[in-house]
Design a protein around this nucleic acid. Structure first.
Length: 551
RNA sequence: UGACCUAUGGUGUAACGGUAACACAGCAGAUUUUGAUUCUGCUUUUCCAGGUUCGAAUCCUGGUAGGUCAACCA
């Protein structure tokens, strides 16, 4: 019963192209600039580009847009490749815009020969002034009418390193009065005596984005070049180069980038968070980077499901981060094994339980996945329960522990609170309880029905572990609308670290393994863990209707 | 004060001239040895004004609102 899923606007274009015979197969590309780590916005683009190729039997190239040597590094290339693979995609070819530097150079020469490009000695301020404004036409550069021969010679000299950075640029000769600012003689090449992460010192001139991207698409025979909305006005230039150069006509289509509540997705600002140590690196679990959410415990399946649910369209959007959390809970609920961990311990002494005795009680690893089997938990006279699970004066409908009340210890026995031990300040130190021997989980003959079920750990065998409790990084819902410094909106309590008490089975956890700590949330073992100390990151809390009700 | 893009519940997305639907969120209930999960039900929607049409979210015109564009960034 495959439910017919409606097509997004790009799929409609592709299906029409195939139906019309324009293409028999498609080729897309994912074109990151290696100047930062990939984030959830990129995941949307990756899912789209690779997903389309998979759906229509085409291919997707991974192409690094590395035309600016001063910001780009090999470290970023490696992280990007790792992230794409982690999401589960395989690229047809690993390519670099820098692979095409020779080709791009000859394209520039072709344009010069056609009288469509010229070398300009103007300073960057002069060029900016010549641009005009959106409502005001620009003016021609005084160098605009150099001869083809002179332009050719000058361009060769630029390449040969005769000039310093900023001394000259190569510009397209289009129309300084064009209504589209990008068509006002855009810069094609600039001089940068900088070391490139791949081409080393072979070049001292580098093409601009507009002169590299479309041509790279064309060289690779990309049929559908998909990018975000801010490139809409670049399309006219993209098409101009294809037309004047008479090369394979790739076509550009634009979709709305992902925006998410309480999140900021700008590589520049994420870099600042890292550099200014507001977070502990690109893979800090609070970061919206793929390496961050991975370390946080998000699964590729959850992220891809999220990308699928948010859809692809052309209007600006602000997705509720709650949807991402829904997706990860939905997946983790199915795959994560359960463990009991007490965060704020309150001692419980079972007065009628033999202190020399310890039982090993079985408990299912995951009620949603019986095949995951069971593990056993030690049970004895002294236990830890959650402070939250006891109230001396409970409100109505509180069905946890209170004086004289009964509660079920998950996978163990029903206990009754007989006595509350307090210090001189009235602080509750310990609970004296009795257990009902016939109420043993799995063989309960007591006939007692209790509404409350709580988690617990055996005091003597409890394993102290560190948990890192994350909250949203920013306190403002729409970070795109702020006008002051974004660091003013950082959440000061986005990380809380504490030591908690876990059942012994957690000792066998592996790095990146996800668990549901019963009633506390989903957690994932952090790579900081070692044999002396285990560390778990809280991926997301559980949905909690009781907390929501305000107790 | 120009050009371009966009406008559907709280948030997203669909409906392709035939009488607005799906998901998340919210609310209510059932089940539950996780106040989780699961299940059931409910609330809430076509930016405005004209026009075309038997019929408009959809087509046309004009407004309005939001976004984008003046880096030797991508």
């Amino acid at each position: 019963m495959a439910e017919e899923k409606s097509l997004n606007f790009i799929e409609e274009i592709i299906e029409k192209d195939i139906k019309d015979g324009k293409h028999t197969t498609i080729a897309t590309r994912f074109p990151p600039e290696p100047n930062g780590y990939l984030h959830l916005g990129h995941a949307k683009s990756i899912a789209l580009n690779f997903g389309l190729a998979l759906k229509y039997g085409g291919k997707t190239n991974l192409r690094f847009d590395d035309t600016n040597p001063v910001t780009e590094e090999t470290e970023y290339v490696e992280s990007i490749k790792g992230d794409v693979k982690w999401l589960g995609f395989s690229w047809a070819q690993e390519l670099y815009a820098s692979d095409y530097f020779d080709q791009l150079f000859s394209y520039a020469v072709r344009l010069i020969n056609k009288g469509l490009a010229y070398v300009d000695d103007s300073t960057s301020e002069e060029i900016a002034n010549q641009k005009g404004t959106p409502t005001q036409a620009g003016s021609n550069s005084t160098f605009r009418n150099r001869s083809i021969e002179e332009n050719l010679q000058l361009f060769m000299d630029m390449r040969a390193g005769k000039y310093k950075d900023g001394e000259k640029v190569l510009r397209a000769k289009i129309d300084m009065a064009h209504i589209n600012m990008l068509m006002r003689d855009p810069i094609l090449y600039r001089i940068k005596h900088a070391h490139h992460h791949r081409t080393g010192d072979a070049w001292c001139i580098y093409p601009m984005y507009d002169f590299a991207h479309g041509q790279s698409d064309s060289i690779e025979n990309i049929t559908h070049s998909i990018c975000t909305l801010e490139f809409v006005s670049h399309r006219e230039l993209y098409d101009w180069f294809i037309e004047k150069l008479e090369i394979y006509p790739s076509r550009q289509y634009e979709f709305a980038r992902l925006n998410m509540t309480y999140t900021m997705m700008s590589k520049r600002k994420l870099l600042q968070l890292v550099n200014d140590k507001h977070v502990n690196g690109w893979d800090d679990p609070r970061m919206p980077t793929l390496s961050g959410v991975r370390r946080r415990g998000y699964t590729p399946e959850a992220i891809l499901d999220f990308c699928d649910r948010i859809g692809v369209a052309k209007r600006d959007n602000l997705i509720d981060i709650g949807l991402l959390e829904f997706c990860v809970r939905d997946h983790l609920n199915k795959i994560a094994n359960r463990r009991m961990v007490v965060f704020d311990p309150l001692k419980v002494v079972i007065t009628n339980y033999d202190e020399r005795l310890t039982e090993q009680l079985p408990s299912e690893n995951n009620p949603e996945a019986a095949e995951n089997g069971i593990r056993t938990m030690p049970f004895g006279r002294e236990l830890w329960i959650e402070q939250e699970d006891f109230m001396e004066v409970p409100p109505k409908k509180y069905f946890r522990l209170a004086p004289g009340q009964m509660v079920r210890l998950k996978s163990a026995y029903i206990i009754k609170c007989e006595e509350v031990i307090k210090d001189i300040n009235g602080k509750v130190l310990e609970l004296r309880c009795t257990y009902i021997p016939e109420s043993k989980s799995g063989s309960d003959t007591s006939g007692i029905q209790v509404k409350g079920v709580i988690h617990w750990v055996h005091a003597q065998s409890a394993l102290p572990v560190e948990v890192r409790l994350y909250d949203r990084l920013f306190t403002t819902e729409d970070m795109g609308s702020i006008e002051d410094d974004f660091t003013n909106h950082l959440n000061p309590t986005s990380l809380e670290v504490k030591t908690v008490y876990a059942e012994p089975a957690l000792a066998h956890a592996k790095v990146e393994e996800c668990f549901q700590f019963l009633r506390m949330g989903y957690f994932c073992m952090d790579p900081d863990s070692n044999t002396k100390k285990l560390v778990f990151n809280r991926t997301v809390t559980l949905r909690d209707m009781w907390a929501k009700a305000g107790k």
